[in-house]
Amino acid sequence: MTKLADLRKSYERAELSEDASLADPLKQFEKWISEAISAQVPEPNAMTLATVDSRLRPSTRVVLIKGYDEKGITWFTNYDSRKGRELAANPWAALQFHWVDLERVVRIEGCVEKVSAAESDAYFASRPLDSRIGAWASPQSQVIASRSVLVGNAARYGAKFLLHPPRPPHWGGYRLRPDTWEFWQGRKSRLHDRLRYRLNNDQQWVRERLAP
């Protein structure tokens, strides 16, 4: 059996220098996620979302980015889920993308807010029918007796709404407004490149290199 401590990989695919990076972190992110999509890495839109509960216990889960612009990073989920309850109590959160094949990580920190009802409605209407029914059928993060509960709920709501389920009041979008970005590029000998962008008091982005 392979020992975990013996697993090694030398990161030599690319580099990230101050001269080659963009001054605006959103544009740098757009460049990297576009390259991840073009390289056909597995699930380039998957990101880990970290939240903290009232006891200061962190939790993480993988969600899918659905949009980004100068206002922030957007995803959609159940507001009554564990992450929804934690964000209601503490809106500060962190996101992380890990594109293994490109030896790249992007970390994003900031405050989270709900998107508008109109924006949530528009995205919900674009989802496949099964996913729209699923949003009604799943009491996300709650204990259920068995999978049959989900199947029964899906059948019940499917019969109720047919082809036009409305958006549930407990379901919608969140937007993280970044105040910190970090771009990590794997390098040889564990001397990785790390560029951090942070907002200063004048709301300007300051780019700085971090030791790996």
Rank of each mutant, 00 (worst) to 15 (best):
T48V: 14
Y79C: 09
R61I: 07
P91C: 07
Y79D: 09
S59N: 12
N78E: 09
S59K: 02
T51N: 10
K66E: 09
T74M: 07
P91F: 03
R55D: 15
P58N: 09
R104K: 07
K83C: 08
V63S: 03
L95D: 00
S81M: 09
K66P: 12
R85G: 11
A93M: 05
V63G: 05
I108N: 00
D69G: 15
P58K: 09
F97Q: 02
N78K: 04
V62S: 13
R82N: 14
H98V: 10
L87F: 07
D53C: 03
P58D: 09
R82A: 11
A93Y: 05
N78L: 02
N90L: 06
K71A: 14
S81Y: 05
D101L: 14
K83D: 03
T77C: 05
W75C: 05
A93G: 11
V106C: 06
F97A: 04
I108R: 00
T51F: 02
S59V: 04
F97I: 05
A89E: 10
A93R: 01
D101K: 14
L49R: 04
L87A: 06
P58E: 03
F76G: 04
W92P: 01
V106R: 04
T74I: 15
H98A: 05
Y68C: 13
R57D: 03
N78C: 03
R61T: 09
W99H: 03
L95M: 06
E70K: 10
S54V: 14
W92S: 12
G67L: 03
Y79F: 15
W92R: 13
V62P: 11
L95G: 01
E103G: 10
V62Q: 04
R82Q: 14
K71Y: 13
L64H: 13
A93V: 03
T77Y: 09
E103L: 02
A89T: 02
R55S: 15
Y79H: 12
H98E: 12
W92Y: 14
A89Q: 13
S81H: 04
Y79V: 02
S59R: 05
T77F: 04
F76R: 06
D53R: 01
R85T: 06
T77M: 13
R61C: 12
I108D: 04
A93I: 08
G72L: 10
D101T: 08
L64S: 11
T60D: 10
D80E: 15
A93S: 10
D101M: 12
L56P: 02
W75Q: 12
L102R: 01
L95A: 09
W99L: 11
T60L: 13
S54G: 13
R61K: 06
N90Y: 00
D80L: 13
